[in-house]
Design a protein around this nucleic acid. Structure first.
Lengths: 206, 206
DNA sequence: TGACAAAGTGTCAAATGAACACTATATTAG
DNA sequence: CTAATATAGTGTTCATTTGACACTTTGTCA
């Protein structure tokens, strides 16, 4: 009888080059050695599952305040060839300005665009797909888009985030009207001076 | 070091007397002996977590085709005084016409209205609350209401289900218009003859 | 046969959502 | 220096959806 183990796996999203990307780590050990997998690890004896997810996430990112939400628990008996491993999947969002830890800068971790994923280990492919679907749904009824941006951002940047998540183009005027009349952003006094015409920087409120 | 164990717990909903009810089981053993808890049990060695949930559910109900969906995984280290027990919570919906197994008819299991819950064991109170919230949300964007009704039902019965879940009264004409123009029900040729004026029976399609 | 209980039905106003194109302004290249 | 360019920013109209609102029909039961 093999020992039952619980892991957490994290689908960490960011926006790069206007596209939604996921962090994957190259596996150094069997099984699936050499292929990519979601970052994650075992839940320790005296920590909650949520704490384990936070801990694993902070081994990858430097920032404290990362959006992290439980996604789904995958419990097929043969999903891991090593034995009975049930995993609680989470998804997380970081602004691309947030720098990853040096361990992550190494060759063993990399960001992948969602339409150019390499083969991934275990059932991680379907975990990633489900995380993407959840994120899309969540965008409709919440302000989750801000989690992928720095503190100050232009409305165009916010629109690009929404477009990257939804995989569709949005009308600029309709988008700005909707966001502004929701009252969830306020203009800062700063302007972004890169590019051609300067754009006003906004900040998330509430 | 205590052994890690995984359980499933099921929030089984039905409608009784126009109110949403939950099935609870009186605990015969310590801890929380004598108080009520959600039906559930351990995930066995060679079954998936989903299979465990189905199995536990069918120990309570006679029907095969019960709506069952994973809810959330609760993994606080001290949520069970006996040791490290992580539970994957599910919620399920049955029509009240579906009869429970005889084991459930016994005094150890009973339906409770959600606003008259007895004290419940472990963290089951918050699991129940979260299940109710999820069900409410789901009603907005899906046809989950039919799962609480028999195959044929009147539009008034469907409206009562929605009202029970939402905890609010709905306008009869607006409700009927919305349901009918969604095209998710079709009239059968039967009429319900109980009560005063007969009502047309509908059936869920698709 | 009259009272009752539940079924069934339509309109209008307000809010929301979708389509659509031009002007303003700083930068950069010639 | 000035013309070309790239991006910021801005309103209106129409269609659809949503929400409020009350009376008639019909079978049952007293």
């Amino acid at each position: 009888m093999t020992k039952l183990q619980i892991t957490v796996d994290i689908v960490l999203f960011t926006i790069l080059e206007r596209q939604l990307h996921v962090l994957l780590i190259r596996r150094l050990a069997e099984p699936f050695r050499g292929s990519y997998a979601l970052p994650g690890g075992f839940v320790l004896e005296n920590e909650s599952v949520d704490e384990a997810a936070h801990r694993e996430l902070q081994e990858e990112t430097r920032v404290e305040k990362v959006f992290l939400e439980q996604l789904y628990t995958y419990g097929e008996p043969n999903r891991d060839p090593r034995g009975r491993v049930i995993t609680v999947a989470y998804y997380a969002l970081v602004a691309n300005s947030h720098i990853l830890r040096s361990s992550t800068d190494a060759a063993d971790a990399a960001w992948f665009s969602l339409d150019k994923l390499p083969p991934v280990a275990f059932d991680h492919q379907s975990i990633i797909e489900y995380a993407q679907q959840r994120l899309r749904n969540k965008l409709d009824y919440s302000n989750v888009g801000f989690e992928l941006l720095p503190e100050k951002f232009t409305l165009t940047e916010l629109q690009l985030v929404h477009e990257a998540i939804l995989g569709a183009n949005l009308d600029k005027r309709n988008f700005r009207r909707k966001i502004l009349q929701q009252g969830i952003v306020e203009p800062s006094k700063e302007w972004q001076k890169t590019g051609r015409k300067p754009a006003q920087l906004y900040r998330f409120v509430d």
